[in-house]
Every structure is written in structure tokens, then in C-alpha cells.
């Protein structure tokens, strides 16, 4: 499926960008074809016999033709410039957006913080953005280590996340769905695996999701998961990850409070299953070489327990 494409568009910006792209491509294709017709004609229509020296009459015809073509060029690029200008202005719809998300780019995952006027309603998550359909969502983009670029082509054009600067991007989904995005600025070893999902859903579903996210992590009920929680808290995991409701409050890695409810792990690398979680925790460096999570030595039992715990964090 084309869930990451500038041609299969479901966001307000992306839709108008697609119109612009198609228009410019169409005009340029026409220009190319005209040049090719000119070329073929120039090569075809050669006079017989020896070459003749330039003649004033023909030179004048050529001057007129070249000048005319240059004038047409000027008109076309002038038009392109003007429509580009207005298209850009049309995109920057800041409006009265009530949903604001801080998006932080890190090597090689996305940290997300839903912020709003009420501090009590804020919460953190990672790698998966939920937005309500039909509403403007303002993204505040911050690069924490190197430059990254936020790009969900089906929704909007891209914008860089730059250390020391703050950028903004407004997105709006016109249709419910799951849209994939990927970091577009080369950011080091695992730039290829820095994806994210945007899930556009109805306002109700979104509210339900947001309320669930705001909650602290559920206490594990099964025995295995409880043991996993113990392991997690005693091993180095807690130094890097936060699980709200426990003492784990690290910030080096993604917030794991509801990791089990996210569709993918490790920035779009795998679908979230107990198996993939176990594989990831067992050896993150083979699966995503160079990423910032080290291999933490665990016994097979501990590994099984920890992944059960992770999967239970819905």
C-alpha cells in the first residue's frame, strides 16, 4: 500500500501540494516535448549538398525564433514563481489549533510530547502520533542531537528538526488512516530506520487513546509479567527508559509506558509482538546496528519475562 507517498495524499497540505506538483510536471513535460520536437526537426530538415555559409535572411529568422522561445521561458518561470509563492502562503495555516505536539528527533527514534494549555493533560510517548481527523495539529520540531527531518508525505511536506532552532509544521488529515513517515535528513548510521506512524482517527477514538496514554502504566497481573517488571527495574533498563507508575524514569530511550499498545517498535522496524520485543531486547545491536540501546545480558527466563511485561504495557 502507498501509505508513504506524495502521490497518495490524505492531508490538506499534501493534497494541494499534489495539485501543484502535477501542474508543474505537466507544463515541464510539455516544454521538454517541444524542445525534442525542435531538436528532431533541426536534425531532420538538413539541406542537401555542401554546407552554405550563414545567410542574413535565415539568421534573422533564427533570431526571432530564439527570442520568442526565451520570452516563452520567461513567462513560464514567472508563472511558476508566482504560483509557488501563493501555494506556500496557502500552506502555513497556523489557525486556532488546540492540539500541539512537541516532536523531538533523536538518533534514531522520535520522542513525542502532547502539550496543551493544561499541564495535567500533558503526556509523553514515542514513534507513533495519533491525531484527530479534520483538525489542525501543530508540531513543534526540535532536533536534540543532529539534524533530522519530519516527513509524512501523505499528509504534508517535510520540515527539518535542527539543534538550537525550533521549527513548526502544521498537519491535518482529511481522512482516517495510518500514514507512514520517515526521517528525511541523513542523521547517521541508522537513518534508514527512523520511521514513524501517524494514526488519524475520529475525535472520539483520539480522545479515548489520549486518555489511556495519560494514565500511568498498568500493574502487571500475570506472574510472568510481574517478574519481568522486577527484572526491568533492577537491570539497567530503567536508567534509560521511563515507565510512568514505576521508578523507571530514564530519558535516553523512548517512553515505554504504553509500548505494548504501539503498532511498531524501534522506530518502525518491527510490528509489536511478544516475539519481536524479545528479539529486540535480546540483541538490539544486530537488529539495528549502531543504535543507542546496548545489549543487556539477560537469562532466557528474564528475557521471556521482560518481553511479557513489555507486551502487557498496553
Amino acid at each position: 500500500s502507498n501509505w508513504q507517498s506524495a502521490l497518495d495524499v490524505h492531508g490538506t497540505s499534501a493534497i494541494s501540494l499534489k495539485h501543484l506538483i502535477l501542474l508543474i510536471v505537466a507544463v515541464c513535460s510539455l516544454v521538454w516535448m517541444l524542445v525534442m520536437v525542435g531538436l528532431i526537426w533541426a536534425l531532420w530538415h538538413r539541406r542537401e549538398g555542401r554546407p552554405t555559409p550563414p545567410q542574413a535572411g535565415r539568421e534573422r529568422h533564427m533570431t526571432i525564433a530564439v527570442t520568442g522561445a526565451v520570452i516563452v521561458t520567461v513567462v513560464i518561470i514567472g508563472t511558476f514563481t508566482v504560483i509557488s509563492f501563493f501555494a506556500t502562503r496557502g500552506l502555513s495555516v497556523a489557525g486556532q489549533d488546540d492540539l500541539t505536539i512537541r516532536v523531538r528527533g533523536l538518533q534514531w527514534w522520535w520522542g513525542l510530547e502532547y502539550i496543551g494549555p493544561d499541564p495535567a493533560l500533558r503526556f509523553e510517548t514515542a514513534n507513533e502520533i495519533h491525531i484527530p481527523v479534520g483538525r489542525n495539529v501543530r508540531l513543534k520540531l526540535e532536533g536534540l542531537d543532529v539534524i533530522h527531518s519530519f516527513w509524512v508525505p501523505s499528509l504534508a511536506g517535510k520540515q527539518d528538526l535542527i539543534p538550537g532552532r525550533s521549527n513548526e509544521l502544521v498537519i491535518r488529515a482529511e481522512k482516517a488512516g495510518v500514514y507512514r513517515g520517515q526521517c528525511a535528513e541523513y542523521c547517521g548510521m541508522q537513518h534508514a530506520h527512523m520511521a514513524l506512524l501517524v494514526i488519524a482517527e475520529s475525535q472520539e477514538n483520539f480522545d479515548r487513546w489520549a486518555n489511556a496514554e495519560r494514565n500511568a502504566a498498568a500493574q502487571p497481573v500475570e506472574e510472568e509479567a510481574a517478574a519481568g517488571m522486577q527484572t526491568f527495574l533492577t537491570k539497567p533498563c530503567a536508567a534509560c527508559h521511563t515507565i510512568r507508575g514505576t521508578i523507571a524514569a530514564g530519558t535516553t530511550g523512548p517512553d515505554l509506558t504504553h509500548v505494548g499498545s504501539r503498532r511498531t517498535i524501534a522506530a518502525g522496524l518491527f510490528e509489536t509482538t511478544r516475539g519481536s520485543l524479545a528479539a529486540w531486547i535480546a540483541d538490539p545491536q544486530t537488529i539495528k546496528p549502531g543504535n543507542n540501546m546496548p545489549m543487556v545480558p539477560l537469562t532466557p527466563d528474564e528475557l521471556r519475562a521482560v518481553s511479557a511485561y513489555m507486551a502487557s504495557l498496553k
Binding site: A6, A14, L17, L20, I21, I24, V25, C28, I77, F80, T81, S84, A87, T88, L91, S149, W151, P153, A156, G157, K158, Q159, A184, E185, Y186
Partner: peptide
């Protein structure tokens, strides 16, 4: 010329 257009380029840059 296409990528010189700012809005166009936001989709195809990089």
C-alpha cells in the same frame, strides 16, 4: 526548475 519551487521541494527534498 521543479525543485526550485519551495512547496514542490518540501515533498521531494532529500
Amino acid at each position: 526548475v521543479m525543485v526550485a519551487s519551495v512547496p514542490f521541494d518540501t515533498q521531494v527534498h532529500d
